[in-house]
Amino acid sequence: MDRREFTKLLGATGLALVPGKAAASDPHPHARKVDGIGVLVDTTLCIGCRKCEWACNQSNNLPEQPLSSFENKSAFTSNRRPDAAHYTVVNESRPDGEPIWAKVQCMHCQDPACASACIVTAFDKRDDGVVAYDASRCMGCRYCIVSCPFQIPAYEYDNALTPQVRKCTFCLERLDEGRAPACVSICPVECLTYGRRDELIALAHRKIARNPDRYIDHVYGEHEVGGTSWLYLSSVPMTELDFPELGDAPVPCVTETIQHSIFKNFVPPLALYAFLGQIMWLTRDREQDAEAEGSDAVATQAVRDQGGTTL
């Protein structure tokens, strides 16, 4: 069983334990009301040139740098995942024989599971929509890695002293300079469109309406896990491009509902303690009674032995 299967199993087990109410589409109470920025990926335009991977490595000072190493199409023979040294990868799928390329990176969820799972708030969904990671807070528990529905965060396992969780940063430094993320800027066919998320969704639906033969009528990421900042247009369902099939409820909606139900008004823990305390008390009483009866009998016998009378 590899890591993916294990996490899938974990997820399935978790979902089985959730009461039906938790999966209802009520807006998650902690959902952040941000619509911020995003990127629309039009997979029908992507040509699999991998320039975005190269630009990402350049922008984020990741180890693999020469452009020539990204011109190797043999990378498409296996289905790759982002790792600590590659924040984004392009994968090739051939659902109908013809190649379709799709870029994979952190989706910057609207209601990120990683931020919900992180117990030291090292992950933050900023008002501009970016899910940012603060290494100075991170304690390395890697709950974020387990929680992510897209299995994006990676860990520097080979860094013994100061390991960090690594994932797409949305090129925060470039955004601060008013520039688009490095991958968006380099894309020769501009299959990546950077803009406001609501405008991107409108653009995506216009594209679908104009080219109903080119796209399926679904914008991946518009509703998945409560919405993501990265959105995908495609000619086939994204699940055929090895993207996970996800419901519309944010992941924290499930986990936090469990958590918050258990600790609601502190009644369940108190009730549990009261219940356990009662069991303890009942058990303890019987033993004490038995002990007390036993000691009384001994005392009576002693008095008789001394020839005296009891009161």
Partner: peptide, 8 residues
Amino acid sequence: SVLLEDIT
């Protein structure tokens, strides 16, 4: 250069 104001 792509204008962020006009993504269409």
